[in-house]
Simulated scan of single mutants.
Amino acid sequence: MLNPQWLRTFATLAEQGNFTRTAERLDLTQAAVSQHVQRLEERLGPLLIRRPRQLELTPAGHALLDYCMEVGAADQRLQQRLSEADAEQGEIGLISPGSIGLALYPQLLALQQAHPGLSIRHRFAPDREVLDAVLENRFELGLVTLKPDDPRLSVSRFAEEPLELVVPAGERVRDWRDLERLGFIDHPDGQAMAGRLLSRRFPGAPGVRSLPCRGFTNQIGLILEPVARGLGFTVIPRFARLAFARPEAIQVIEGAPAVVDSLWLLHRAEWPLSARAELLLQRIKASFPSLSAAG
């Protein structure tokens, strides 16, 4: 491994372009600066072309400078990750299903605006990917719809989210024939969600697979757009419906029995949450009273 002090000397020399200024910047002698460069060149070959009043990097020198920048960035990331006690500086990683993610994302942005030192990394993902990401420490916090049973995880109830039957505004749904007339707008979880809800609302009906499919999208933020345009109905989690930008163009068909999913908060059980993650959870629950009540 290359000596970190040699790397710092080389990076400063490349920036300053002069041995004298580099020595002054680093509080070293010019002889020490020359020695550090010499040690590196013994390992890596010629790094500099020395001209009167000018230094030029060789291809190896440019490669080493890139390496110095990568090492510096890695060091900064390490310091950021180790500063767990600082609630207002560093990165927070949250991975969640799309529906709750749509509801949370504006709040995450508001938190970052209030604390510019934070960097919030949020990803939409299905349950299996969320579990893997938290277990592999790629994200500190995760939300899933199915409660996992893994001793490495701390799991707590975070919220409850009903499934909703959503139709174009002004439509009436009295029986199964109305759903056949409207047709189904499908999405990656559409068949499963519609099957769970419609089998309870319309017992004895042929099932969602018998309905005409009027469209499909895998973008959760777009599922309700064809519904709003009168092209069909869908079944979707409530938080996704609440995040839709044109609520006046859709309506929820209320009914019983309800189908309500729990959302579970995950993080590694072996160590406590960072102060940043605690701050995020505090702000989210304050902004979403329904989440706070369910937590």
Rank of each mutant, 00 (worst) to 15 (best):
Y67Q: 15
Y67G: 06
Y67V: 13
C68S: 11
M69Q: 15
M69W: 15
M69L: 15
V71H: 09
V71M: 15
V71Q: 15
V71L: 15
G72S: 14
A73Q: 15
A73Y: 14
A74M: 15
A74G: 14
D75V: 14
D75M: 14
Q76K: 14
Q76R: 15
R77F: 13
R77P: 03
R77L: 15
R77C: 08
Q79H: 13
Q80I: 10
R81G: 10
R81K: 12
L82P: 02
L82I: 04
L82T: 05
S83K: 11
S83Q: 14
S83L: 11
S83Y: 07
E84L: 13
E84P: 04
A85S: 15
A85Q: 14
D86H: 13
D86M: 10
D86V: 11
D86C: 11
D86P: 09
A87R: 13
A87Y: 11
E88N: 10
E88K: 12
E88P: 01
Q89G: 06
Q89L: 10
G90M: 02
G90T: 07
E91Q: 13
E91M: 10
E91V: 13
E91Y: 01
I92G: 05
L94C: 02
I95Q: 00
G98E: 10
G98F: 05
G98K: 05
G98S: 12
S99K: 05
S99Q: 07
I100D: 00
G101V: 02
G101K: 03
L102Q: 04
A103C: 04
L104D: 01
Y105R: 09
Y105C: 01
Y105S: 07
P106Y: 03
P106T: 01
P106R: 01
Q107A: 10
Q107K: 07
L108C: 04
L109M: 08
L109Y: 04
A110P: 05
A110Q: 10
A110R: 12
L111M: 09
L111S: 02
L111W: 07
L111T: 05
Q112D: 05
Q112G: 07
Q112E: 12
Q113R: 12
Q113P: 03
Q113N: 08
A114D: 09
A114P: 05
A114V: 03
H115F: 12
H115P: 08
P116R: 12
P116F: 11
P116G: 11
P116W: 11
P116K: 11
P116A: 12
P116V: 10
G117Q: 07
G117R: 06
G117I: 08
G117Y: 08
L118M: 05
L118K: 01
L118T: 08
L118Q: 01
S119W: 05
S119T: 10
S119H: 11
S119L: 11
S119K: 09
I120C: 06
I120P: 07
I120M: 06
I120Y: 08
R121Y: 06
R121K: 08
R121D: 09
H122F: 13
H122M: 09
H122T: 07
R123S: 04
R123K: 13
R123G: 00
R123Q: 13
F124I: 00
A125S: 09
A125R: 00
P126D: 03
P126E: 02
P126K: 04
D127A: 02
R128C: 02
R128M: 05
R128L: 07
E129F: 03
V130G: 02
V130R: 01
V130K: 01
L131F: 06
D132N: 08
D132A: 12
D132I: 00
D132Y: 03
A133N: 01
A133C: 04
A133V: 00
A133D: 00
L135E: 06
L135H: 02
